[in-house]
Computed example of a mutant assay.
Amino acid sequence: MFATLPVFLRVTLACLFLLGNTVLHVVPLLLLTLVRMVLPVPALRRGVGSASVWIAESWLSFNGWLWGAFTRTRWTVEGVDHLSPRENYLVVCNHQSWIDIPALQKIFNRRIPFMRFFLKSQLIWVPLLGPAWWALDFPFMKRHSREELERRPELRSTDRDATRRACEKFRHVPVAIMNFTEGTRFTPAKHDAQGSPYRHLLRPKAGGVAFVVDAMGDAIRNMLDVTIVYPDGAGSMMDMIAGRIREIRIHVRQLAIPEGMRGDYENDTAFRERFQAWINQLWTEKDERIAAMLAKPA
């Protein structure tokens, strides 16, 4: 609809639409959250929480419409036809670009439960978005430098404890928990610095996945292994609106979380090695899948 407009006008209008859509949805979302905080009956609080999720899904739906209206990006998506909004999922994905998050929200919105991400604690101060993430029960994690951890080893458990608190809350509602297992976006410099054994991926960090699987217990039995590639190269959202990202390819496969993959990752050496071997195997398969997806003609 707007994709034929000059780039400057297209980017300006898209930003205004995004801002207006965010304000339109975040304001009632925060008001509902205040109501939920003062309600004395748990069942009523859960009802208000469901209404908050409905608002968030409406927010994402409009954003998804915007990507279609303002861009000519072609979406090639496999594996989303047999998902359920009533089933809990752990979603793991490689991390290429800031576009990854809105892309995943677009393909999964209302196909699976509303996705929650583990966010850096500093992001709670992002105008509008930070309070909205807080209102939607996104877990905020504190990151500590190596020097801090050496001075105060007890801080090593803070992320684990935050994960357990969040997962305890998630056990009572349909949820999809998102994890970018590499921990950061892929760049050639990071790849070389790590000495990564994969061609298209950074080394996976298995600990975060292990903590979620253990904390959720039987409440989460399925994993969505998501692979995302940009044949023209990863870029920014402005690159996408400006027409420089012509195609996004996404592959989704549903896997049952194997028996024996719930345990004490931190203290059980044998379990930790077994869990890491499982994640490393998934990453080997993902690396091969990325190569195949990139090799397909446009």
Rank of each mutant, 00 (worst) to 15 (best):
residue 145 S to Q: 06
residue 114 F to C: 02
residue 157 S to K: 15
residue 105 Q to W: 09
residue 138 F to K: 13
residue 146 R to A: 15
residue 155 L to H: 06
residue 157 S to E: 14
residue 101 I to A: 03
residue 136 L to S: 03
residue 138 F to R: 07
residue 151 R to W: 05
residue 159 D to S: 13
residue 97 S to L: 08
residue 87 E to F: 11
residue 160 R to G: 04
residue 150 E to D: 12
residue 100 D to N: 08
residue 163 T to M: 04
residue 93 C to H: 09
residue 153 P to M: 06
residue 149 L to R: 15
residue 171 R to K: 05
residue 139 P to A: 05
residue 153 P to L: 07
residue 109 N to D: 04
residue 166 A to Q: 03
residue 118 F to H: 12
residue 117 F to L: 09
residue 168 E to I: 08
residue 157 S to G: 08
residue 89 Y to N: 01
residue 128 L to C: 14
residue 168 E to D: 11
residue 113 P to T: 02
residue 131 P to W: 00
residue 170 F to M: 05
residue 141 M to V: 10
residue 131 P to D: 00
residue 164 R to I: 14
residue 141 M to R: 13
residue 115 M to V: 07
residue 95 H to P: 13
residue 131 P to G: 00
residue 140 F to T: 10
residue 118 F to R: 07
residue 91 V to A: 04
residue 146 R to L: 13
residue 158 T to M: 09
residue 135 A to I: 05
residue 115 M to T: 11
residue 120 K to Q: 09
residue 90 L to N: 02
residue 158 T to W: 11
residue 130 G to I: 01
residue 171 R to Q: 05
residue 128 L to H: 08
residue 151 R to I: 10
residue 159 D to M: 12
residue 123 L to V: 11
residue 157 S to T: 15
residue 91 V to R: 08
residue 107 I to L: 01
residue 157 S to C: 09
residue 106 K to M: 06
residue 160 R to W: 04
residue 112 I to Q: 01
residue 142 K to L: 08
residue 101 I to T: 02
residue 149 L to W: 11
residue 122 Q to K: 08
residue 167 C to N: 02
residue 162 A to T: 15
residue 160 R to P: 03
residue 162 A to M: 11
